[in-house]
């Protein structure tokens, strides 16, 4: 550094990202026009691109629609998305759409989804208010969708009932009303991945999820309380054959050991248990032998070892 001439342009890429990621959406756009190097850095940094906000109600000229670039990620935040938003500008190239902290019209959301027919990731977080939700009947049948929802949208799950969801992530959910979720899951036969993150209510309180129509390959339970009753085990029994990956992070699974033994094809286990005591290593070793790809599991097992509170030697 000493004696070397430093310039904003010649700073290392990571530091330019550090600076530009602190700019507002409009300042990021200005920076992207400064030089080719800046433009390249900005276009290739998801950390910066995530800061970009699309202001639909402000794009008024229909001429613009043709010019929407083939970007595959869009994030709309803190927006009021009105019925007049030029939803036609949603391209079929769009694969990831995030709408958060927004107030949105139902008809507008349905149009957006019709245009972005190849959507693979849909994240709806902190939707303040969904107006005219009755007009959402015409939603397209999106296939292979990865859906990420929080409490603000779970109540409206019915509008997405025609979509074929591959992966469902529910976060920050504490409403006790579970009928919508139950109805939604009933139609999902292709669901392969379920992530439950910070769910405050007890999903397995009654028997409503004892029998499900999908076979999970991946299940992740994070910061979520699992009751010590039969219903959770019954839910799991649907996936004894199919489950390949099980992640339990800061959550406790009752009868963890017994539960684990039932899975026939599990080859990835990732866990960080709150309080569960594993006191019998030989049994665990047997489980590994029986059901798991040993090398992989052993590695993960020992990586997670410090989280096991008590451990009895062989």
């Amino acid at each position: 550094m000493s004696g070397e001439f430093l310039n904003f342009e010649t700073l290392p890429e990571e530091l330019i990202i550090e600076i530009i990621s602190k700019c507002s959406s409009s300042d990021i756009l200005s920076s992207s026009l400064v030089s080719k190097r800046f433009n390249n850095i900005i276009k290739n940094s998801s950390r910066i691109l995530n800061k970009l906000t699309i202001y639909f109600p402000n794009i008024k000229h229909p001429d613009y629609y043709d010019d929407i670039p083939n970007c595959n990620q869009m994030k709309m935040s803190a927006s009021f998305i009105s019925t007049k938003a030029p939803v036609e500008c949603f391209h079929s190239s769009l694969t990831r759409l995030t709408i958060c902290y927004a107030t949105i019209y139902g008809s507008c959301l349905s149009k957006m989804l019709i245009y972005s027919c190849n959507l693979k990731y849909l994240e709806l977080i902190q939707i303040n208010y969904l107006k005219e939700s009755k007009k959402l009947e015409n939603l397209p049948e999106l296939k292979n969708l990865n859906l990420i929802l929080d409490e603000s949208f779970v109540r409206l799950l019915k509008v997405l009932k025609k979509c074929e969801v591959k992966s469902l992530t529910l976060k920050n959910y504490k409403i006790t009303e579970m009928d919508e979720l139950q109805k939604f899951l009933k139609n999902q036969r292709k669901l392969k991945e379920l992530n439950l993150i910070n769910i405050k209510i007890n999903l397995f309180y009654d028997g409503r999820f004892d029998k499900v129509n999908f076979k999970l390959e991946k299940l992740r339970i994070e910061k979520t309380k699992i009751p010590n009753n039969d219903h959770f085990v019954k839910f799991l029994s649907n996936h004894y054959e199919s489950l390949k990956c099980f992640e339990i992070l800061n959550a406790d699974i009752p009868n963890f050991r017994e539960v684990l033994m039932k899975f026939k094809n599990l080859n990835e286990l990732n866990f960080k248990l709150n309080t569960y005591v594993i006191d019998n290593l030989p049994i665990m070793k047997n489980i590994m032998k029986m059901t798991l790809n040993r090398k992989r599991i052993l590695k993960r097992w020992f990586e997670k070892f410090p989280n096991v509170k008590r451990f009895k030697n062989e």
Binding site: S32, L33, L52, D67, P69
Partner: peptide, 16 residues
Amino acid sequence: QEIEAVQKENQWCEEK
């Protein structure tokens, strides 16, 4: 020419 192309790309997320 290049700057025009990039400006066009940016239009969709400009705050007006």
